[in-house]
């Protein structure tokens, strides 16, 4: 009974609360800039409005362009069934689920990129080219970080890794955990197209990565993409929180609210980073991602000492 409750609450929380993360980030940024800013629930209003609008399709596009938002949203929804919140199993947890999650994200990338190329716009081609470059570097960082965590906790699924984090581990092996956290934070920023990798609020198509790839989507298609971007942010934040917080010491009634709160803290931190930093020059972004790879390898080396 308890297990089933956890299994249902986890994806439900993600699906309901994910757009709020974007609202929180905008709220933090507005406060930093001394503006009043949008209401916290603005992303929900946006989604609602977009879902009820009509769509315009470019005459260059084919069925690929129409399939893209649907495939992206389906795949990301599937990932929300894999990543646990707090501890306990999810509906789709099995040994090796982290590989499936990473590759579902790869499927999303594949479709977003070909969807962008389908419009024939050179700006969208530019965004697609950058997306594949940066994510090809973020991918090894993510995998090595997961290998380090797998070694640290001797388990190969998200739910087991999250459950194995204990306060004692922080006392004895904080180096690994800290380095993995640093690597995952960089991966989170890169995969979700946040500053310093990409600026979601820039006004110039030449400098965008993610936003420029979905320039031509409108109506429900755009709503799907917006929602999947929010879910993706939620997923990475949940992974980060799961790798850091020792959930095993709490009963599940507490651990789930605590991790939800922690996810929102992550979004506040992202907002702070975005308010204080500028976007890196695009030629410098690979260095940042190399750093993530290097940190993940360092974390892995630290797992050898015990």
């Amino acid at each position: 009974m308890r297990d089933y409750a956890i299994m249902i609450i986890q994806p439900a929380a993600a699906m309901v609360l994910a757009p709020m993360l974007l609202g929180v980030i905008n709220w933090v940024k507005a406060n930093f800039a001394g503006r009043r800013g949008q209401p916290l629930l603005q992303p929900y209003y946006d989604l609602w409005k977009l879902l009820h609008k009509s769509a315009v399709y470019s005459s260059t596009t084919s069925w690929i362009f129409k399939a893209m938002p649907i495939v992206c949203l389906s795949a990301i929804l599937l990932v929300t069934f894999i990543i646990p919140l707090g501890f306990g199993k999810t509906i789709l947890s099995f040994n090796g689920d982290l590989i499936l999650a990473a590759y579902l994200l790869g499927l999303i990338r594949f479709f977003i990129v070909i969807g962008a190329l389908d419009t024939g716009s050179s700006f969208e081609g530019m965004g697609a080219s950058r997306e594949v470059q940066f994510s090809a570097l973020a991918e090894p960082a993510f995998f090595i970080a997961m290998a380090a965590m797998a070694r640290q906790t001797s388990s190969i699924s998200f739910s087991n890794i999250f459950s194995a984090i204990t306060p004692q581990m922080w006392a004895t092996n904080s180096a690994t955990l800290l380095l993995v956290t640093a690597a995952i934070v960089i991966v989170l920023l890169a995969e979700n197209s946040r500053i310093p990798v990409d600026d979601p609020n820039t006004h110039l198509e030449l400098t965008m990565i993610h936003e420029v790839m979905i320039l031509d989507n409108s109506g429900p298609d755009f709503a799907f993409l917006l929602y999947s971007a929010a879910l993706k942010l939620w997923i990475f934040a949940a992974i980060l929180v799961g790798f850091i917080l020792p959930m095993n010491v709490m009963p599940w009634q507490i651990s789930i609210p605590v991790s939800i709160a922690a996810i929102f803290v992550v979004s506040i931190l992202i907002g702070i980073v975005e308010s204080c930093m500028a976007r890196l020059r695009l030629v410098r972004v690979p260095h940042l991602l190399f750093t993530a790879v290097a940190l993940a390898i360092l974390a892995l080396i630290f797992t050898f000492r015990n």
């Binding site: 879902l51 009820h52 609008k53 009509s54 769509a55 315009v56 399709y57 470019s58 005459s59 260059t60 596009t61 938002p69 649907i70 419009t119 024939g120 716009s121 700006f123 198509e205 320039l215 031509d216 109506g219 429900p220 298609d221 799907f224």
Partner: peptide
């Protein structure tokens, strides 16, 4: 999506040229 777009006019235009 099909239901959402059912009673609306879906138009086609050129790709956004920035």
């Amino acid at each position: 999506r099909r239901n959402l777009l059912k009673n609306k006019t879906v138009t086609a235009g050129p790709t956004w040229d920035c």
